[in-house]
């Protein structure tokens, strides 16, 4: 049973205020948003920061719902992904992890690298270029989620693709939303 305590300690040391692992649907998305909103409200967080955190959460959660690759391992199929929120003195971190087929990694990495290479105005131009030319995909996305996360957070997107097995990597994404100075 020690793993319970270990997990608890990890959450404390990593300053995690919310962790969810499992299936992601629109319903779970709404529940997680409601929980996080209550948490932010009760901590008296400033509304502009609350909105940014909410914004990044929605895009992150809906990305998982729409794009997480189904993990097929023999007879077992799973959609299991993970979503975490960390809260430190100077920032919130919205983190997610989901399986992605290796064949899809290069394209995703190139898109994220491009976003990270752009400044505020570059991101605005990219956003306008995509929204003018995109159509909603079969999966229901507009292709704007990562651009929006970068714009709203004002920070670079942190990401990694650790290998799961021959066919899959685990797409890890961390988006930091700075908090106003003064709470030290």
């Amino acid at each position: 049973m020690n793993f319970i305590y270990d997990l608890h300690r990890t959450m404390m040391s990593q300053k995690l205020i919310l962790v969810y692992q499992g299936d992601f649907t629109q319903e779970t998305t709404k529940s997680i948003l409601a929980m996080a909103e209550r948490n932010l409200d009760s901590s008296g967080e400033e509304s502009s920061i609350k909105r940014k955190v909410f914004n990044v959460m929605v895009e992150s959660l809906q990305n998982i719902v729409k794009h997480s690759d189904e993990l097929v391992d023999g007879q077992t199929r799973s959609h299991a992904a993970i979503f975490l929120i960390g809260k430190e003195a100077n920032r919130y971190s919205i983190m997610s992890g989901n399986p992605i087929r290796k064949v899809n990694v290069d394209k995703l990495k190139a898109a994220l690298d491009k976003i990270n290479s752009l400044d505020k105005d570059g991101l605005k131009d990219l956003y306008k270029e995509i929204i003018k030319n995109t159509t909603i995909s079969e999966k229901g996305g507009a292709g704007l989620g990562f651009v929006d996360m970068a714009r709203k957070s004002g920070a670079k997107l942190e990401f990694a693709f650790p290998e799961m097995n021959a066919e899959y990597c685990f797409f890890c994404l961390k988006v930091n939303v700075p908090r106003e100075a003064g709470e030290n």
Partner: peptide, 12 residues
Amino acid sequence: EYFNTASSKLIL
């Protein structure tokens, strides 16, 4: 009050 990116395309 808030809209996601998929909605922003539809708002356009």
